[in-house]
């Protein structure tokens, strides 16, 4: 199962990277969303899969799945929601102000010489 999950994670990272390298803002945002999914699954896979019951003491099980990665992922999910929302609004405002969603056209002109 871990091997399969590693491949799934790899595919998620690959598509995310491809989207992030494109020029349209929306694609980049979708790319970051995929990237966070990939990262979450990666953390979960690292902790070992299906090693016991769900991490609830009420289950009275012999062994439990590793709770720490789950706690980390929970934090990460909520944070990535905040970041995605922020990014989305940023893109939307930038589009309204600048009239383009092509990041190549958004390039600032640096003039510090």
């Amino acid at each position: 199962m871990e091997i399969l999950m590693s491949i799934v994670v790899g595919v998620l990272f690959m598509t995310a990277t491809y989207l992030m390298l494109s020029k349209s803002l929306l694609r980049i945002i979708v790319g970051t969303g995929l990237l966070s999914h990939g990262a979450h699954l990666l953390i979960l896979t690292m902790g070992g899969l299906k090693r016991g019951a769900a991490p609830l003491l009420g289950e009275n099980a012999e062994s439990y799945t590793d709770p720490l990665p789950q706690a980390l992922i929970l934090t990460a999910i909520v944070i990535s929601f905040g970041v995605t929302a922020f990014f989305l609004v940023l893109a939307y405002r930038a589009y309204k102000e600048l009239g383009t969603d092509n990041i190549e056209q958004m390039r600032g002109t640096e003039s510090n010489e």
């Binding site: 871990e2 590693s6 994670v9 790899g10 595919v11 990277t17 990939g38 990666l42 896979t45 690292m46």
Partner: peptide, 16 residues
């Protein structure tokens, strides 16, 4: 992107 995907898979496998 293929490189990133492949390296992440390899890392995941090795880490496991």
């Amino acid at each position: 992107s293929v490189g990133v995907g492949a390296i992440v898979t390899l890392i995941a496998l090795s880490a496991h």
